[in-house]
Design a protein around this nucleic acid. Structure first.
Length: 583
RNA sequence: CGGGAUGUGGCGCAGCUUGGUAGCGCACCCGCUUUGGGAGCGGGGGGCCGCCGGUUCAAAUCCGGCCAUCCCGACCA
């Protein structure tokens, strides 16, 4: 196929659009791939649509190859199924809601677990029907609080979502891994640099959920990776390696010290080192900080107290804490709560009062049996030194609530952690029976008894991938597409108005087309400089320049990624390019 | 929802302090010249200056209110 730029619906911009910050947004607008029509809403122009369709094709081929079957739901959905799962309420302001002429409630689908579960229930009844995996590639709607970064986070976007249905947990794990492997193939084919991070804490069940994050400085998701292995994880999922337990026998007795005016860790450490004669130097890491919180299970009205103990040099990471306590709601204790619980002496809280008053006490994994701590003595202006875990206090358990810092040892014991940023491009998730329970999705088993189906849910952000690929592949002149997603195989530039040059280029374009390549032919009357600049901006990986060399029987093949130019005899160029593209 | 900024042809911007017939660059149209790195000259088309109200003989410009958009944060299957 040959597309002539003289008639292509395209207008490139010489300057960056004022509202674009991230490279993908800037370049996709400048190069005429997309145009903004509303906050978080973009139209796809011919070049952009071709890239989107190419990515969609890769996703579809791999989904089909794994045996998933494609179906399609409406984006406009009735309220009832989402009411049944309580998501009509849970989604809050994040879904688009609308009413029909009769006043009935509808929504624009943000994700389709309900519909898939209901559809399978409607069609399948026997255990012989399972397992099955279904998917769709469909427009999703979410009323994001703040759409941003062009098509990286829009309110309307194209997503591939799929769902697996299995008779038992082993089947779910198989389906999960089939999807995971498929996603690896998809992202590898797209030439992306990405990591797979565990998205949930160990307490919630290992690999039940993993995210695929494309490496990008502009990414919204922070994760950590190890310097010594390929370990990578969401900050919420990092497991703190516990130090070895220590002997209790050789520890000195706990002693209470009068430590006036030391309500903070810094003031306490300073006091211990300058105003006491303990014969050693303390740091914040030697102190045990007890943070008081309150938590509430979903649906409950009463808050219960919770204390988290952690080394004094670490802050509580509320996101990690929330992830560890999910689905419970959690909040820091307020002054009124302290007033209502007089045994809590703010600034001087120790494990003693907590345990004595039945407050659930969870500690950081670094606080193991045999470790000695400086902590509050439950009395204003008093701290206790050498309070030993397992001897002087016994926590109710451990919790991953402390902040993760660069330089922390990696959980696998190899290397240390460093922070990195990424963009979520895929998510695999063992849903379990949540939706099957709500809708009564059962298969009739061989013994005549119903078997509750277990589901997996898997997503790929198809339109987002256009921006993510761009984000990982561009230079100061413009986009640089990998061949699989490039809008065309070859960009032919006619450099010169000479009629023989034009005719030669037309002939070559026709030959390339005949050899099965897609060709973007710049047959415009503009000056060569304009055409070169546009070719670099548009980003087709191979540019064929037909110009002054033609008289000597050569044309120029330019590699967009390296900007290397090689002269190739006209007679060989078609074969040369076919080999390049088929590579 | 908090903080910051900005709204002037399709795009990028100036003009606003000090009110007086709306301007520049890119893009677009016509003519001539030009054609290997965003051509030159000449001629042209296109704007309810975000919206509403106020002040004034006169408002893009001053005052008040509203709306919208972008950025940072909170939020985000």
């Amino acid at each position: 196929m040959i597309t002539r730029m003289s008639s292509l619906f395209l207008r490139t911009l010489r300057e960056d659009p004022a509202d674009a910050e991230v490279p993908s947004h800037r370049l996709l607008v400048r190069a005429g791939y997309v145009r903004r029509v509303a906050p978080g809403g973009f139209s796809w122009l011919p070049l952009g649509l071709r890239v989107l369709r190419n990515i969609e094709r890769v996703v579809r081929e791999e989904m089909d190859a794994m045996g998933a079957q494609e179906i399609q739901f409406p984006a406009l959905l009735p309220r009832e199924p989402y009411e049944a799962t309580n998501r009509w309420t849970e989604y809050g302001p994040n879904i688009f809601r609308l009413k029909d002429r009769k006043g009935a409630d509808y929504l624009l689908g943000p994700t389709h677990e309900e519909l898939f579960a209901l559809t399978v229930k409607g069609e399948y009844n026997s255990y012989k029907d399972y397992p099955v995996s279904l998917y769709q590639i469909q427009t999703k709607y979410r009323d994001e609080a703040r759409p941003r970064a062009g098509i990286l986070r829009g309110r309307e976007f194209l997503m591939k979502d799929s769902y697996s249905f299995d008779l038992d947990d082993e089947g779910l794990v198989r389906s999960y891994h089939a999807h995971r492997d498929t996603y690896i193939r998809i992202f590898d084919r797209l030439g992306l640099k990405y990591v797979i991070v565990s998205a949930m804490s160990g307490a919630m069940g290992g690999s039940a959920s993993e995210e695929f994050l494309a490496e990008a400085e502009t990414g919204e998701d922070t994760y950590v990776r190890s310097t010594g292995s390929d370990y990578a994880a969401n900050v919420e999922a990092v497991i703190t390696p516990a130090p070895p337990e220590q002997s209790i026998a050789d520890k000195p007795d706990a002693q209470v010290h009068h430590t006036p005016g030391t309500p903070t860790i810094a003031s306490l450490v300073d006091f211990l080192n300058t105003k006491t004669e303990l014969g050693r130097t303390f740091t914040a890491a030697d102190t045990l900080k007890n943070v008081l919180l309150k938590m509430r299970q979903p649906g409950a009205t009463e808050w219960t107290l919770l204390a988290v103990g952690l080394p004094g040099d670490r802050e509580v990471d509320m996101k990690r804490l929330e992830a560890a306590l999910e689905p419970a709601e959690v909040a820091l204790l307020e002054d009124a709560d302290f007033a209502a619980n007089s045994f809590l002496v703010k600034g001087y809280i120790g494990p003693g009062a907590l345990t004595a008053n039945g407050v659930r006490y969870l500690v950081d994994p670094r606080i193991v049996r045999g470790t000695a701590w400086v902590t509050g003595a439950d009395k204003a202006d008093h701290h206790v030194v050498d309070l030993v875990c397992g001897r002087d206090f016994t926590p109710d358990g451990t919790i991953e609530a402390a902040e993760v810092r660069e330089g922390d040892p990696a959980p696998d014991g190899k290397g240390t952690l460093v922070a990195a940023r990424g963009i979520e491009i895929g998510h695999v998730f063992q849903l379990g029976r949540k939706y099957a329970d709500v809708f009564g999705l059962d298969a009739l088993g061989p013994d005549g008894k119903p078997i509750r189906i277990t589901m997996g849910s898997y997503g790929v952000g198809v339109s987002r991938l256009v921006a993510v690929v761009a984000e990982q592949s561009y230079d100061e002149s413009g986009l640089i597409w990998p061949r699989v997603v490039s809008p065309y195989d070859i960009h032919v530039v006619i450099a010169g108005k000479d009629e023989t040059v034009r005719a030669g280029a037309e002939k070559l374009a026709a030959d390339l087309d005949g050899a099965g390549l897609s060709v973007l032919l710049d047959d415009r009357t503009s000056s060569p400089g304009v055409k070169f600049a546009d070719a670099e901006l548009v980003g087709v990986p191979t540019i064929l320049v037909v110009g002054r060399g033609l008289a000597n029987g050569v044309v120029e093949v330019k590699d967009r990624a390296t900007n290397e130019r090689t002269e190739v005899p006209v007679a060989d160029v078609v074969n040369h390019l076919v080999a390049l593209v088929r590579g």
